[in-house]
Design a protein around this nucleic acid. Structure first.
Lengths: 115, 115
DNA sequence: ATAATTTGCTACTAAAAAGATAGCAAGGAG
DNA sequence: CTCCTTGCTATCTTTTTAGTAGCAAATTAT
């Protein structure tokens, strides 16, 4: 199996430093990682529910991301479906402010006509 | 030119919703986006300095990311080199707590021998 | 018990993005 | 002028993502 979630202290995609923050950025910097954490923050979801909320991301990618996030102790799979672990919830609490900020960002983006 | 930074309110890679948070996640979910913001937080850097600090990411990718981040109003290019805009600094302030958290995450990761 | 549906995937292929390397034009310093 | 540095572009290879089909196991309905 070709599956290597970035682990702090190890070699990972695009990051040879092994610094925790870089391993984290490597993990979060993959498609749908952030989106998955965001969608799971509310309550556990089944694979297909999650897929629906992530704009029907392909099962290939969704499954790969879920494996990585589980191996990274951020997500687990219980009887309710996929959900955030305690660590995952901690991380989400850091992520939550991005929601509000992004709206402000979008506004300034519209003001600035240069795009 | 094939270059499409995700814009809130528009169609973007992997995100058809146009919701600001999804546009932001799309932008940040590209390789080295988070790392670049992290490295620029301290002070402006030249292209090559930045490249060095990002583990010698290829100029192809670095330049693509910088274009996107500039178009997204998070980074600009002045006489000192590349630096964070005001918006970029705001975003960094949200990102900063990840540094500390990632260290804790790494610790728990080591404790958990399952990997 | 049987049939239909849901769930969590895997396989395969195509397209897009990232990575690696070479090198060049413009600007400044000596 | 010559030698660096800077900010790239071009080209090519490898990896990742996207898109679609479908299947085995578990659950629900009849």
């Amino acid at each position: 199996m070709s599956f290597s979630p970035p682990k702090p202290g190890q070699l990972v995609r695009g990051s040879r430093s092994g610094k925790p923050i870089m391993a984290l950025f490597d993990l979060l910097g993959r498609s749908w990682s952030l989106g998955i954490l965001w969608q799971l923050s509310d309550k556990p979801l089944t694979f297909r529910e999650l897929q629906n909320r992530c704009e029907n991301v392909s099962p290939t990618v969704l499954n790969r991301r879920l494996k990585e996030l589980r191996a990274s102790l951020l997500v687990d799979h219980g009887s309710q479906g996929y959900g955030l672990t305690e660590l995952g919830q901690e991380l989400f609490s850091l992520l939550e402010p991005f929601g509000r900020w992004s709206i402000n960002w979008a506004d300034r983006f519209k003001q600035d006509g240069s795009n």
